[in-house]
Amino acid sequence: MEPILRTDAVTKIFETGTLIVRAVDQVSFEIQPGEFVALVGPSGSGKTTMLAMLAGLLNATEGEIHIDGHELGKMSEQEKTRFRREKIGFTFQANNLIPYLTALENVELMLRLNSTNSKFCREEAKKLLGRLGLSDRLNNLPKQLSGGQQQRVAIARALIHDPSLVLADEPTASLDTERAYQVVQIFSELIHEQKRAGIMVTHDLRMTQYVDRVIQMVDGKIYQIIDDRAEIDAMAAGGRFETAKKVEEKELKGGVMGALNPGLAPVRG
């Protein structure tokens, strides 16, 4: 089966004066349709930078990103914007919703952006929000919704336009544990059902119980890829892996300078 997402030795280098930072370093992986992957790692490991590159918001310095057979690097900024709108679903940590649009209108927004706001599509939006337990909240404004409900609306918006790839940046960051579980569980169900490729960046290892694979990044590189169910479940259950422990210890000792400079992992020497 053709993967929906393929990255080949993707590298991102930031240069600030004399400081050269390899935020993402030679990262390669693939995601198949219907596969939900967690991108984990300590602060500054490069996972958010990776996500931004996958979304076409940041250009890779080296390497290639292929989504649905299209290479992002070959697209103009305009083409990338259109590609994002048509092929990518996106949820963010915060500021997910337009405050003056109701829950239903926020979901319909993606349809309007893609000029596919037919009656049928609007019905689909209602169904999806119903599926996410928001049938009675369709006409509520974001300020009238709880954090969890807002995240669920954002999930509906990320899926409504039939994207190939769904990206979630720390979707549970502002939620309590119970709501966080609910949100990720339903996200996972929908990705599997609709055969999309999903990537979730998270700090919260407990959320990995709903994913198929965990890609762990450290200092901009893939530290390990875990696809063993038992190993993933152990990590999610709070039983730390050996590897995770090591990374955390390293971070505590200041080995990962990125912890001091979130999002960036400096290279020494």
Binding site: R82, R84, F92, A94, N95, L113
Partner: peptide, 16 residues
Amino acid sequence: VPQIGMLKAIGANNKI
């Protein structure tokens, strides 16, 4: 600004 950033991130172009 955050709202406009989000709109752009989900695919709204500068014209919109």
